[in-house]
Write a protein that binds this DNA or RNA. Structure first.
Lengths: 271, 271
DNA sequence: TCATCTCCATTGTCGGACAAGCGGATGATG
DNA sequence: CATCATCCGCTTGTCCGACAATGGAGATGA
């Protein structure tokens, strides 16, 4: 398995090992990067609040004393990073990095690194287990209502694989929202984008899978109604396990990397 | 708790609800974005392999039929996204998104969204538990050796909070590498950047914490040597729990958001 | 063959220019 | 006076052209 974090061209030079190699390589950044970094620091440090307007390009030209083209290139860096955004008038505002954007990039990185379904599945097992336990503690009546509604819709759509797959994603998303943990929420986004979409395929090739899916959801919801954390956890583990069984049942190996063309399709649908 | 994924200006217009609202808003992207998207598709789809050279700016100008400035702005978007990179000669090559770069962005997003230590801690508990279980199955003798070495260094540095904090991060990083799961590896990066660095503070204010930390590491390593998954898991949970206790012991609330200035410092050290 | 040098290609940066579009000011109207 | 339509100016997106610095490749020499 290849590592993901090797990088021969490390700017920082790593930890200084002893007395030799005193000076690390100097980072001679181009001006557009310096512009981007300067603005980024203002935002991250909180000196510019999210929603607050960044100056116009002309302002930045004056402040930084560089050409407008240079400013614009710097802005492009930040724009992709999600730290600034444009409203309808295309003016620039500071922003908090968007969530789904990050999730898309994370998922894309996994695809490019040829992460296997096994890795995805193991992470799913861990995260969803934690989510359901937290949800058992914290879910509100409103959250339970959402789950009930989702469950009813799922039972109605049990013969429609594509609809059911969407409802499956929705189910777990509701659950995670109820768990009230944004770190787990982001950590489980790759599941939404890469893992759960495969359920549609499973439902198509194996009608049994659809029923087991909805049954598991039902059992989890019932357990949450009773605030029965242990039972909810048990069913969640079964539920995630079922995916693996289903995957193997249709003759695919869980150890193969996520299919690139498939994932590209999925990721582009919500670029 | 605020949601992280609301966005009134959604480009896609969401799911079409019934027959009304047939046409979603048209995405009239500027040319530089079209350029970036075009190149991105080439890379993500695999038509351009990582490491392969992208044409020069002049080439792209010819291919896309736009001005060089426009091409350059498009390139800046991709550059920040990590899909292309420049070698020493500043030439452009396709690349796989770097891992630590992504991790930094994720962590920064958490800070800006004012995620609480509780959320981080809950995620840590889930992820580290999964990691140690997988590691118990998969760790090699070499991995065990690395852990042994880390443990020895930790015991030697038990009175040096800053060193010990670094060794603590290293311990969990080794463990995750041994678990052989890159999804979890990325998911736990925010711990490295935001959660574990707080241990230095704990060690400083409470010498007991350092000892408990190293003891827990020792117990985990011993369990892994015996391939005793249950015991390793038990000690890991204690270990993560200790952090919470220590945090409360020094009078801080686990429900407060991650301190912005502190986090900025940590994140900038490996920008 | 190997080291050195020169020249060229390429990037980074600059200056200027213009069309399109939005915001706000201005004016008209009830 | 309030509401609405119109217009002007600012801002962005795009284009053009230019030049210094620098790395690489090929030419040149030992």
């Amino acid at each position: 398995m290849q590592s993901m974090d090797n990088d021969p061209e490390d700017q920082d030079g790593g930890a200084d090992t002893g007395a030799g190699n005193r000076f690390g390589p100097i980072a001679a950044s181009p001006a557009y990067k310096l512009v981007a970094d300067a603005i980024e620091r203002q935002i991250v440090s909180g000196r510019v609040r999210p929603g607050e307007a960044i100056g116009t390009e002309a302002d930045l030209v004056k402040q930084f004393g560089v050409n407008r083209s240079t400013v614009r290139e710097g802005i492009r860096l930040l724009e992709q990073g999600g730290l600034i955004r444009r409203d309808s008038s295309r003016r620039l505002y500071a922003s908090v990095p968007r969530y789904d954007r990050l999730a898309t990039r994370i998922s894309r990185a996994f695809v490019l690194h040829e992460v296997t379904f096994r890795e995805l599945w193991e992470a799913t097992m861990a995260i969803e287990s934690a989510v359901v336990e937290l949800a058992a503690d914290r879910i509100s009546d409103e959250g339970l209502g959402e789950l009930d509604l989702n469950l009813r819709k799922s039972r109605a759509a049990i013969d429609k694989p594509s609809e059911l797959a969407i409802l499956d994603i929705e189910f777990h998303t509701i659950l995670c929202k109820a768990a009230g943990n944004r770190v787990l929420q982001l950590a489980r986004e790759p599941e939404n984008k890469l893992f759960f979409p495969t359920t549609e395929m499973l439902f198509q090739k194996n009608p049994q899978a659809a029923r087991r899916n909805v049954d598991a959801h039902g059992a989890i919801v019932a357990a949450l109604h009773r605030r029965d954390k242990a039972d909810a956890l048990l069913w969640m583990k079964r539920h995630v396990n079922d995916w693996k069984k289903g995957f193997e049942l249709i003759g695919k190996s869980i150890d193969e990397p996520i299919d690139r063309v498939y994932a590209q399709h999925v990721l582009e649908s919500n670029l």
